[in-house]
Design a protein around this nucleic acid. Structure first.
Lengths: 156, 156
DNA sequence: CCTAACAGTTATACTATATATCTATATTGC
DNA sequence: GCAATATAGATATATAGTATAACTGTTAGG
């Protein structure tokens, strides 16, 4: 007996979304004990690896809209993991910096996530995981192409 | 110069989530002209392919919580694409059925989605797309394993 | 100097996920 | 047969995340 969603299972978008939901639930579960969630962890990671970058740069790196970053940084500041410092040479901008506690939490969170990752990808060889990442990058790039309001199919 | 999110890019969950967001935006853009979105299309698809199944069965097939299905079906009913009919033999349950219009919209939506799919996966061979689906299924299965509140890593 | 652009923020709308709890109905076990 | 348990669907609620419009203050360019 075929699965009721057999047609949908032939769609790459459907596959990606289902995996994303389940994987994110696991990611958030791994991060919760440290008071983090997916979005705050990502921001803390980028700022820890690249201290001093601007909010606009962080938004671009994480591919999210600038207004949505405000609350994320607010949460990290409130938790004492990150600070906004006025940027030199541009009074509009902030330089984002991790605190000492932020760096420590980041290291622990990354270790936990890498363990969760290992469990997520169990059964996939390193080469298969690499191929998966490459395929996802291609899809992300294709989806991000500017094409008006719908992806165009070139004539065959 | 490494990307600011280079560390994150090594995480499969991060990769999947980024691809999911971009891909879903494209999927919703493709479905919008037909008055559908990802969740209503999925429900319509399963019900069209398997007329008569119950809400609980649909929720299970789509891996969503039963309460969240109520609004989805309400929307499809309001649009005249699906109907709830009292199930025979069980007055608690409904049999979900597509309408004539629902079947027609489903066919058009599926055609549009398949074109969008082709654009999303451009640059991937059919074998690579199949491998992607397989890898995503493994990840979804691993993430869905019951392990308490966090995935356990077996001792090496 | 004026205009346009930028950095960050506020406000808002929408979608989706998850959980608790409820009513009505069906099933099970004694 | 009846009580206890489970189920089907619904309501309510909370949380997270995405997207867009518009705003203020500042910077850059002509």
């Amino acid at each position: 007996m075929a699965a009721p969603d057999a047609t949908l299972r032939g769609l790459t978008g459907y596959r990606i979304q289902r995996a994303a939901i389940r994987a994110m639930a696991r990611v958030n579960a791994a991060l919760a004990p440290l008071g983090l969630r997916r979005s705050t962890f990502s921001a803390l990671a980028v700022v820890s690896d690249t201290p001093g970058l601007r909010q606009t740069q962080l938004a671009e790196a994480l591919a999210i809209e600038r207004p949505n970053l405000v609350q994320i940084i607010d949460d990290l500041e409130a938790a004492g993991l990150m600070v906004r410092e006025r940027a030199e040479g541009d009074r509009r901008a902030y330089a984002l910096l991790p605190t000492e506690a932020g760096r420590a939490v980041y290291a622990r969170a990354l270790a936990r996530l890498q363990r969760a990752e290992a469990a997520l990808t169990r059964g996939l060889s390193p080469a298969e995981t690499q191929a998966l990442h490459r395929a996802l990058q291609i899809i992300e790039d294709n989806a991000g192409e500017e094409t008006g309001d719908e992806i165009e199919i070139p004539s065959a």
